[in-house]
Simulated scan of single mutants.
Amino acid sequence: MNTERLRSTGGARTAHRSSLDIQALRATLAEIDFAFESDLEVVKNSAMDEGLKRKVIATLQQRHRERRAAYVHQLAALRERTDALAA
Rank of each mutant, 00 (worst) to 15 (best):
R63E: 03
R79Y: 07
T28H: 06
R65Y: 02
A84D: 08
A69P: 14
E4H: 09
A87Y: 08
G11N: 08
S46L: 09
T28G: 02
E50A: 15
Q62S: 09
T28S: 06
K44S: 04
V56G: 01
T3N: 12
Q23F: 12
V42K: 10
H73D: 02
A58M: 08
T59H: 07
A35H: 11
L78G: 07
V72C: 05
A86P: 14
L60R: 02
A12R: 05
M1L: 08
R63M: 03
A77P: 01
Q62T: 13
V43H: 01
R7P: 13
L6T: 06
T14K: 03
R65C: 03
E31D: 09
G10N: 08
S19N: 06
L60M: 05
A86W: 11
S8V: 14
Q23E: 05
I22R: 02
R68V: 00
A30H: 06
A69Y: 03
L20N: 07
L20Q: 13
L40T: 14
L75Y: 05
V42F: 11
E37C: 11
L6G: 03
A76Y: 03
R7Y: 13
Y71L: 03
L20A: 10
K53A: 06
R17V: 11
F36A: 00
R26F: 04
R7T: 14
R54T: 11
R5M: 14
I32T: 04
Q61R: 10
L29H: 01
D49A: 15
G51N: 11
S19L: 08
E80Q: 09
L60C: 00
R67C: 00
A84W: 11
K53R: 08
A47Q: 12
M48K: 09
R54E: 11
A69L: 05
R65A: 00
R5H: 13
A76W: 00
E37L: 13
